[in-house]
């Protein structure tokens, strides 16, 4: 069984030379991605990777499936047209923080709103890597970069909250090197019926190294990560010693889980208020929420498209009869 799996995984690695910087978090994501594809065991020809522009967007070249490396910010739109024309394809959109939230923000908004059944993997490294290190829309205020030598002055956008506001039906997070966490989230994204947004905290070793270390480093992981499971209490820290509960003013607080057992919140993927609270959490006050934060069912765009389409995109009549319908006259 193990051998067979390995063989399949090999199938998803393309012959192309991988050209990311040595030590880039993208390598880890690529590996977990191909392993996940092997695990869910789809035929490679029925999978399409569509990407925009940026370091992460090179990924389609490195996976042995159909791939379309498009233009900056527009991958969701191209994926939308493809999904409508071929709804049975398994489509993965690969994008980054600049690609998805800056130049392509509009398309991300509308793709989430429409809820097509596809997966969007957003590699967030809080920086423009391919263009050599400028601040991005997710860079924290004060980020020093070649285009912000005194520190950036605009607030950052929170990808998950953006998705929630857009009506996203699946919002999840993972860390690039967390094979288990990322693998499980990718798998859930694939099986979710609707648009899945997965934010991957990805380390850019060259331009923004350790930007997430306040919750990803070995010493911080235990206290500043909370791994969510639907229906389970929101616990974290050493031996699950800490938990999250809600205050009267509808804010979260971290409490000792043993002494406040009954107050600890239970994760509910369908509760929008909880989604918002979890997505907003930041260290040092809170841990970062990882795993599937939100998962709800909503109407799927391409299903509605075909259900409402009177001929299901198949031609039922000839143009010859259509143009002869109505006020026609004959000259003899």
């Amino acid at each position: 069984m193990k051998n067979k799996k390995n063989k399949l995984e090999h199938n998803f690695s393309s012959s192309q030379e991988v050209r990311w910087c040595p030590g880039c978090g993208d390598y880890a994501v690529l590996k977990t991605m191909t392993q996940t594809l092997s695990k869910i065991n789809l035929s490679p020809e029925n999978i399409v990777f569509v990407s925009g522009i940026g370091c992460a967007s090179r990924m389609p070249y490195y996976i042995e499936t159909y791939g379309f490396h498009t233009i900056h910010g527009r991958a969701p739109s191209i994926a939308t047209g493809l999904k409508i024309s071929q709804p049975d394809l398994d489509i993965w959109v690969i994008t980054g923080d600049g690609d998805a939230l800056s130049i392509g923000g509009n398309h991300l908004l509308h793709t989430l709103r429409r809820n097509l059944n596809l997966n969007i993997i957003l590699f967030n490294n809080e920086v423009y890597g391919l263009t050599k290190g400028q601040f991005s829309p997710t860079s924290r205020i004060g980020t020093k970069s070649p285009s912000s030598p005194k520190g950036s002055i605009g607030s950052a956008v929170n990808a998950g909250l953006f998705a929630l506001g857009a009506g996203g039906t699946f919002i999840a997070r993972a860390i690039d090197t967390d094979k288990r966490g990322l693998g499980s989230v990718l798998e859930s994204a694939h099986f979710h019926k609707g648009t899945s947004l997965v934010e991957v905290f990805q380390n850019c070793i060259v331009y923004n190294d350790k930007v997430f270390s306040n919750f990803t480093s070995k010493e911080n992981a235990i206290d500043f990560q909370i791994h969510l499971e639907n229906g389970k209490p929101l616990l974290f820290g050493k031996d699950n010693s800490k938990g999250l509960r809600i205050r009267n003013n509808l804010e979260l607080e971290v409490v000792d889980s043993k002494n406040n057992k009954d107050d600890i919140l239970i994760h509910d993927e369908t509760n929008p208020v909880l989604s918002q609270l979890l997505l907003s959490m930041e260290p040092p006050e809170f841990p970062v929420a990882l795993g599937v934060i939100r998962k709800v069912e909503k109407q799927i765009y391409e299903n509605n498209f075909y259900e409402s389409h009177s001929s299901k995109m198949k031609r039922k009549v000839s143009i010859n009869s259509v143009i002869r319908n109505g006020d026609i006259w004959t000259i003899t």
């Binding site: 739109s77 939308t80 024309s85 198949k314 259509v322």
Partner: peptide
């Protein structure tokens, strides 16, 4: 629609051409 035509009103001009490109890539 009876002629096998689908219409997609996109969120902007760029999305509309990109969706058309995606559809062409998919064989329509």
């Amino acid at each position: 629609e009876e002629l096998g035509i689908g219409v997609f009103q996109a969120e902007d001009e760029i999305a509309s051409i990109c969706a058309a490109i995606g559809a062409s890539y998919g064989g329509a």
